[in-house]
Design a protein around this nucleic acid. Structure first.
Lengths: 227, 227
DNA sequence: AATTAATTTTAGACAAAACTAAAAAATTGT
DNA sequence: ACAATTTTTTAGTTTTGTCTAAAATTAATT
């Protein structure tokens, strides 16, 4: 992967990426209107582009039937997502961006064309498996470990995952996290769930702490299933 | 600088950069034909674009008279060059590209639009003053230290600079450099010149060594003059 | 100074990617 | 089942950046 030799325009790449995301990981066909809405463009423009992508056999398309990525198209999508997420890791880990600032810049960087660059960037970052939001990074062949983002309150005892996001991003809540030494990127394990009040005991680097149900419904963990 | 708020297309940026380089640092007016040749395009295309840039007052243009960057255009050019050279430093210092591989990739990266990105990249790289080829990196305000490329044999005692090129690129000579731990990017200082045979003692990272006149007439240093 | 040569500009066209407005197909509601 | 609504496609423009071919201007040569 990564090594698709045909030329793709910036616009084509954006369409492929959008179709991949809307297809819910390539299972269901995507409506013209949905693509138009997602990309802030008009349905007629989408029809034109989809025809073009179909010519290049990146998508399977029949009039009025929606569109689905071909295997070729899926690999293109994954190569773009790989680049996007590696750049996000770079921006956060090396340039000290915060995890919520990086998306827009990564949308530009993902279109840079150089296989050598991405290989070396990957190595420089230590071959990360997930991006700063906890989403998995496909490898060069488009393979990636599926992972699920869940609230701590939704998980059973024994679950383990990386803290990747908050529901409530109020200053007060972030302050609370800071006080309790909970940070994005930390790994937690669910030790015990108190049925009475729904509070949860979790293990962290600095020992185990108990958090209230309210906190547990505001913290996302990224559960990585190897498969 | 850097903070020009108007939108510029990729193509416009490429023209501005080319005009800057051909104008010999903005002193003389640039011919339509020269731009076309440099950019692998046709003179008629250049005329069209130059009109457009003139509308935006990025260049001063009169029919048949060639074109010159305005002050505004000059700052745009310098901001692009700043980005190009910072990315080159990144590619060489952080991703272990060799200095002769980076230009093509940097030509893409220089168009990424994000002031925060460039500021943080600059900091991450330790505010470098020159790129891997020894060319100076303009600061945020477009100010850069002029630098001159000179043979070691042309320099007085006390001079200091970065090794940026060779006259004689024969395998034998490159092998000699390798053996003596002299590499592109190294900083040298001229310690002593032996009048008798023209040999020069220079200080390197790994101590001081004496090189013959022959060697001294084959190695270019980039001298950075603060001004 | 006049003719030739080189350079530059104009005029008209084209491809990519978008748009608007209107027609066609699919879906929905009763 | 069929009228109404929604979705999708077609047809015809627009903009950006390019092109070719021809006309206009400047430069060079004798």
């Amino acid at each position: 992967m990564c090594y698709y030799s045909f030329e793709m325009t910036l616009s084509e790449e954006d369409y492929i990426k959008t179709i991949y995301h809307l297809s819910d990981f390539n299972s269901k066909s995507v409506a013209t209107n949905a693509i138009a809405e997602q990309m802030n463009t008009k349905p007629s423009s989408v029809t034109d582009m989809v025809k073009k992508l179909s010519e290049k056999s990146l998508v399977n398309y029949k009039k009025y039937q929606g569109v689905l990525l071909s295997e070729k198209g899926r690999l293109v999508a994954l190569s773009i997502i790989r680049k996007h997420r590696l750049w996000e890791v770079f921006l956060v880990d090396k340039l000290n961006f915060s995890w919520d600032e990086v998306h827009v810049v990564a949308e530009q960087l993902e279109h840079i064309k150089s296989d050598a660059l991405i290989d070396k960037l990957d190595a420089h970052l230590g071959y990360p498996k997930v991006d700063p939001h906890g989403d998995p990074i496909p490898n060069k062949d488009g393979v990636f470990t599926k992972s699920v983002k869940k609230l701590i309150s939704e998980l059973p005892v024994g679950s383990q995952g990386v803290c990747v996001g908050v529901n409530d991003s109020s200053a007060a809540f972030l302050k609370f996290l800071d006080k309790n030494k909970i940070a994005l990127g930390d790994t937690f394990k669910i030790l015990e769930i108190e049925e009475f009040d729904g509070s949860v005991t979790i293990s962290t680097r600095s020992g185990s702490i108990r958090i209230s149900k309210q906190i547990a419904t505001n913290l996302f963990l990224e559960i990585v299933d190897e498969e």
